[in-house]
């Protein structure tokens, strides 16, 4: 299956990545080879099978709805690129 430059640009946008022209060309070429590898799956007969999302088919445990985390806002914001008055700063999104 072939992948066009437009497809690559669209996937990059969905993944919030910005690729240079050279990277897009390289990605298109590698995608072709990787999809050829992946497409080998189509030869397997899986009609009667349920998908397996998890090797150990255990259900998620439930716990009491109580607060277990302590407030670590200061510690967590210490490692943020930009913070002010306890808030994370991002470029303006509303005029």
């Amino acid at each position: 299956m072939s992948i066009s430059a437009d497809d690559i640009a669209y996937i990059a946008h969905l993944a919030r990545l910005q690729l240079s022209e050279a990277e897009k060309q390289e990605a298109a070429l590698n995608f072709k080879n990787i999809l050829a590898l992946i497409d080998q799956m189509q030869s397997a007969d899986t009609d009667q099978l349920e998908p397996l999302s998890h090797a150990i088919e255990a259900s998620q445990p439930l716990r009491e709805d109580i607060v277990t985390e302590k407030n670590q806002r200061d510690d967590l914001q210490k490692i943020a690129p930009k913070c002010e008055q306890g808030l994370y700063l991002v470029p303006k999104v509303i005029d």
Binding site: I8, I11, A12, L14, A15, L17, A27, F31, I34, I38, M41, Q42, A44, T46, L49, E50, P51, L52, S53, A55
Partner: peptide, 25 residues
């Protein structure tokens, strides 16, 4: 990029669900 493509609209069944069925096999 590969993961985003495999999960994107129109390809989910052909890739992701198929892969999970292979996982069961």
């Amino acid at each position: 990029m590969i993961g985003t493509y495999a999960l994107s609209a129109g390809y989910y069944d052909a890739y992701y669900i198929k892969a999970q069925k292979i996982r069961r096999l």
